[in-house]
Design a protein around this nucleic acid. Structure first.
Lengths: 256, 256
DNA sequence: CGCTGGCATACGTCATACCTTATCGCTCGA
DNA sequence: TCGAGCGATAAGGTATGACGTATGCCAGCG
């Protein structure tokens, strides 16, 4: 192999971080707070020392702290300093915060809670869809279901089709607030639980049956049945996945 | 009156904004986006002109834009500019965003949707409480209910007691995620619907009855009944309040 | 026609100076 | 002795100016 053949690729490996400096700062500070290393009420170091610690200018540090404030993690006041807020104030829909919460949760408690919330919201939306006799909506759901059937067997595309189905239902429901919240949660859930695969041999089949039950209830305009079908589906499918009781691991940031 | 008696108080009326400069900038930009004056995909003016427009330095303007980015309202990319994101990305739990949404919603649609979400989450939490036989929790709820009874007649303290009751139940439920989301929503709802008072003569009585039904179901550890009682209560009480069909108005920022 | 390179634009980062606010301690007078 | 008041210190807030870096466009060359 000639020495000069592919020099650029080997010599200039495209510097890794590249991303904005603030990202690393925010990420680290969020972790410190979520993991409790910085406790509620505690004061962060002043901007000067902190910016020096991270090796960034005070400007960047300040923008990062402003981000933390938006996430509800801290409150900053002139003359006093920046202190950590109680968890009740945290914006748990925030991707970074939610990911940090999930990653630092050995017992899967957060994902359990997330499942309860998703089940509540999505079942309400399923009920709403069943209530509004929307031919377009129903057709769209049936198409999504068909796509799932066709991709059964291929884990990746099946999961993607699964997401499409849930998203479609939420959009059809017309409740933009519930849709917004549920989608934020769902997105994080997918990114985090991706690791315990639906390896159960009959997972595809069960998932399809549950989805079919939802569509069926909606087509019959049976509100209560639609709610129950969605509620059961989300809880049951989570149980299927979490059973292997192994602690979830790893994280991948950006996802959308 | 001597000319020099109270010069500072009269001549320097403590500059109006008082708050940080960025607050006004963020507030105005949020409004522009939420009201659709800045449409999805549209580019904001560059930082230079924009900072000049608001009469602040580029520093302040940038921190404000970073806040908007955290709220999910815009996405900023180096070399290109800052563009408005689709509503699906907005963080609707954010106080400023949610308030703006509510204020710019003539049909009360947002509050209707908010009610659905609250009903779903709080009924789930009520069910959870009924499921866990917690003597402490039950006692706490009964105390809250008693406080409500005692303050019946006084709108303000009654409402406050109402909030205490709902908060208590959410905290007892043990689902911190649901609690977090529901509280954020509830907070905004209270701040916004405060204006159409519970003027119905029998409002106190009805509210008390509904709350009593919730506590009763929980004391009997009847999960389904507790869920239904809470669900009905939130929907019914909202119907009571929204009936006067008058458009909600006014806004007050800080509230917590 | 297609690729390359320059240039304008817009955000990213840094350094510095100065203002405003909050705290705390110290002085001084009642 | 005690409390009001003042001033020093600390920490965040704002303003500038300069330079770095990513994008996009377009002319010019092969």
């Amino acid at each position: 192999m000639p020495a000069e053949s592919q020099p650029s690729a080997r010599l200039f490996p495209r510097r890794l971080p590249a991303g904005r400096l603030g990202v690393a700062v925010v990420s680290e500070l969020v972790d410190l707070i979520v993991t409790g290393q910085l406790k509620e009420g505690e004061l962060l170091p002043p901007e000067g020392p902190l910016s020096e610690h991270f090796g960034v200018s005070r400007t960047v540090l300040r923008e990062s702290v402003k981000r933390l404030e938006e996430k509800g993690l801290v409150v900053v006041s002139q003359g006093r300093g920046t202190q950590v807020r109680a968890p009740g104030y945290w914006n748990m829909l925030d991707p970074v915060v939610l990911s940090a919460l999930i990653d630092n949760d050995e017992t899967l408690g957060v994902l359990d809670e997330l499942t309860v919330v998703r089940a509540s919201l999505e079942s309400a939306m399923a009920g709403a869809v069943a209530g509004t006799r929307s031919a377009d909506g129903l057709r769209r759901l049936e198409n999504a279901l068909t796509t799932m059937r066709e991709s059964a067997g291929e884990t990746d595309s099946f999961r993607q089709a699964d997401v499409v189905f849930h998203y479609a239902l939420m959009e059809i429901s017309g409740n933009r607030l519930a849709e917004n919240i549920a989608k934020h949660l769902y997105k994080r859930a997918v990114d985090s639980s991706r690791y315990q695969g639906i390896d159960t041999p009959d997972a595809f089949d069960l998932t399809l049956k549950e989805h079919a039950a939802i569509v069926d209830a909606i087509s019959r305009q049976d509100v209560a049945a639609a709610q129950k079908a969605m509620h059961d589906h989300i809880h049951i499918s989570w149980e299927r996945r979490r059973l292997p009781d192994h602690a979830p691991r790893a994280r991948d940031q950006a996802s959308e």
